[in-house]
């Protein structure tokens, strides 16, 4: 019954996606062009790469609000290194390394410090973002080597960008881990009941620490791509992205209470949100209206299943 419910959730997202396609294709003549769609993918790939590990973290019953701030910190670290003449491979390592360390700090605060993750990562969010501002002020770092541009601007083959390919491969990898390995089973169990999981011999804290670290690591990777695409670093880079990334995960059907969710849902939600952003941009709708529409969409899709769930089941609930 559960599987059927979530399957239905994903079909709903697929239906929304089709509606979007039909709507934008009929309103804008440029929409249904391979290269237009390829451009459109940049609207979600970087965020979606962070949404994948974050989905695992939310399924495990935790959250990380600091992902966008980690991206800013990683970008600043790369910008400073680039200014000192560091080469491209080392820049990538610095970006991802910064993310990994920042994620590990979150993980340590939650698992060792026992700070609730929402509090801990709101704290680190301001800390990391503040750090980025403190170091850069109103400066812009843009002395990146030419070869660095490939991550955000390169194409793997045809209209498939390197970013899109990376996201696709990562999505498959995350789906396999979550749905087809024992580690995935443990993540679902931890989210559904961390105490019973611990009493069953699952290393709950270790899982959480690793998930926070991985989320940091991929925030670092997303920073590499975004910085490479923009070719510059400002401390305000990826500002506000945490909410968009969390929106993707929740729209994807991941339960905010933990224990439920699929990678397929998150991937579909990422494309849905990316296309909304892009399509409305194509129609020259201002950004503020766009955020209103995205907000309304999010509330609707989160509220509808919650209400639907309560309605028929309240009567059927067994109480013998």
């Amino acid at each position: 019954m559960n599987a059927a419910r979530w399957l239905r959730w994903e079909s709903m997202l697929a239906a929304v996606l089709i509606v979007e396609f039909v709507f934008f294709a009929s309103t804008s003549p440029y929409f249904l062009d391979v290269w237009t769609l390829s451009d459109a993918s940049f609207n979600f790939t970087e965020r979606a790469i962070v949404a994948l590990p974050l989905a695992l973290l939310i399924i495990a019953g935790e959250i990380d609000i600091s992902v966008a701030a980690i991206m800013a910190l990683a970008s600043v670290a790369m910008g400073l290194a680039a200014a000192h003449g560091v080469d491209t491979p080392a820049l990538v390592a610095i970006g991802m390394g910064t993310g990994l360390v920042a994620g590990a700090i979150n993980g340590a605060l939650v698992t060792i410090g026992r700070v609730p993750s929402i509090v801990a990562t709101i704290g680190t969010m301001t800390l990391f973002r503040g750090g980025a501002y403190a170091v850069l002020g109103d400066r812009v770092l843009k002395e990146y080597p030419a070869s660095f541009a490939v991550f955000g601007q390169g194409y793997a083959f045809g209209p498939i960008s390197l970013e899109l390919l990376t996201f696709g491969l990562l999505a498959i990898a995350f789906a396999l881990v979550l749905h087809y390995t024992r580690w995935g089973r443990a993540i679902f169990a931890i989210g559904a009941n961390p105490i019973a999981s611990r009493c069953s011999g699952i290393a709950v804290d270790r899982y959480k620490f690793v998930l926070f670290s991985i989320t940091g690591l991929f925030s670092g990777l997303a920073a590499v791509m975004l910085t490479s695409r923009l070719g510059s670093t400002r401390p305000s880079i990826a500002q506000g992205w945490e909410l968009e990334i969390i929106s993707m995960v929740i729209l994807g059907g991941v339960s905010v209470w933990g224990g439920k969710g699929t990678i397929l849902g998150v991937v579909l939600a990422a494309i849905v949100l990316g296309l909304v952003n892009f399509g409305l941009g194509l129609l020259n709708i201002p950004g503020i209206v766009m955020s209103i529409i995205v907000g309304a969409l999010l509330i609707t899709v989160v509220a509808i299943p919650a209400i639907a769930e309560r309605w028929p089941q309240a009567r059927l609930r067994k109480t013998s």
Binding site: R185, A186, A189, N193, I195, G201
Partner: peptide, 22 residues
């Protein structure tokens, strides 16, 4: 709250301490 994960199936609950063996 400690012994079982109530919303999980019997099979999933039995699997919990036996993840590595399975």
């Amino acid at each position: 709250t400690q012994g079982a994960i109530l919303p999980f199936s019997i099979a999933s609950n039995l699997a919990l301490p036996n993840l590595t063996a399975l």
